[in-house]
Design a protein around this nucleic acid. Sequence first.
DNA 1: AAAAAAC
Length: 601
Amino acid sequence: MEAFHLLSRGGAKFNKKRFSKDLQLFHSKSSSSSSDSKASTEKTLDGLKTGELPVELDFFKYAPASGSGSGGAGAGLKAKSEAIAKEQDDQREVADRSAPSSPTGKKRKRDAGEDSAPASAPVTLRHKIATTGSNVPPPIERFSDLSDRYRIPPLLLKNLSEHGYTTPTGIQTQGIPILLESRDLAAISPTGTGKTLSYLFPIFAHLSVPSSSRTAESASTGAGVRALILSPTRELAGQIYNESLKLAQGRKWRIVLYSKATGATLAQKEVRDKIDIIISTPLRLVSALKQGTIELKNVRQMVFDEADRLLEQGFLPQIEEIIGACTHPNLRKAVFSATLPAGVESIAKSFLFDPIRVVVGLKDAAAASIKQSLVYVGSESGKLSTLRQLLASSPPLPLLVFVQSRERAAELHQELLYDGVAVDVLHAEMTAKQREESVSRMRQGLTWVMVCTEVMARGMDFGGLRGVLNYDFPQSVQSYIHRIGRTGRAGREGDAITYFTDADAPYLKSIANVVHSSGWPVPSWMLALPKPSKIKRRVLKKMPVERKDIGVVAGRGIGKGDAVRRRDMVRASKRRKASGDVPGDGERGKDAKGRRSEGEE
DNA sequence: AAAAAAC
């Protein structure tokens, strides 16, 4: 109720300049790299290798489906960390999931997800699939149905089952046939429901014979790249690449994860012409086009992952340039995302030909398996202490913490480092190498808390991730849905906590609506808030994560001691891992049903 | 509506 009064006044005012000195102390001092971490990312950099799966690929994925991070009260973070691994092993019954912040004890709705209809119901009903468009091919029931209807290389189905893909998800049942029939597609399916596989499988099925081993009989496919996948971030591109390697096992398809390094490797046309698939971020590809080091004339399949992001202002000109370079008459395009605002969808429709639109579940909805809660923290200064309390009690670990800017990510990372948390950071100001290592440490289970910016909000799949914290309030409903969608993937449970302050009032209502419509309790006054109008949003960018004037630990630089401490922390974390107490341990390789999860968007 | 990300 106190919150309501504060909120109805329209939020507190902040003096940004006041904190600029503190900010300078923090600025660009964050070094996330650790000499101890062995990032085995070289493989993914060399796109020309048809190589093996990175060792770490499946380490962190597929944690148990049941249970939460809540347990013994008052336990410190380290004790907690150790307890959690054990918990995950024998946890079958769902523990008390009411977090300290949970507004009420109301039971969650479980009918918003897939598979709520009886098993005998048609697939479209079971998965809540709605399609529009002409001549929509019927969905499949099982992956094996595909070979009855289409010519599928048997190797592909073998690779599917060998990587644990047993039953197609909703988007896969409908999306795969559509793409196999070479139709354009706009696919909207919640986070963690296997969108990546939905487009990768048809790409490989169409490729059939690798460019490098083409015979006269199959030479009609022409020379050069035949499939192109675009992603808004490097990390997601890398993840898609890793997923594609799963399907590519046993055949010499050449898949290129486009980077500066690969650009140089591809100087000769003969090398380039043997590429089958390119996975890239837009700008990287555009610069290659400008340098004339890549041709896209032979591309017949094009996928826009996180399409609504790719079609935002900043990316759009690059996207247009890339589409312009794909001149093959049989070019088919597909856009995929968990969210597709109407305005962006109409842009997509403008370059799709007679598209089929598939919506799984409700459009712009959060995944049903994520527990969502909104936590009032008063003002900016309340965030850090609330987070410290969370970390000291029963945090959902591993945890991804979203902040609004790179500066704030670096600061919060430092703060938590001082607290002795196995924390890491990822934002776009870091070098490519630092970013790779940060992701790698996360996948290896060396990191319990990753502080990050929006760069990690979409597509990333840390299968074992138990929680997402919106330390800074998300700037849009789409951002919220994608951020919290980093957890609760493939039907597993996840915890999403969102801090809000008085200053977040203008957009609280729209996020509260998402929480509410997902079946989670929300105070009625939140839903009754006025629509976001012209109330000015606070600029968080330069706001230090903690105000100096309220004491505790304010801005400090990094000293030698801190570096040592960091190394020790990683070592300790490794020891825990070695003794089997850390996520990333092989024991977590499967979920409660012993089944593996599907790929991702 | 706005920062972040894309090189």
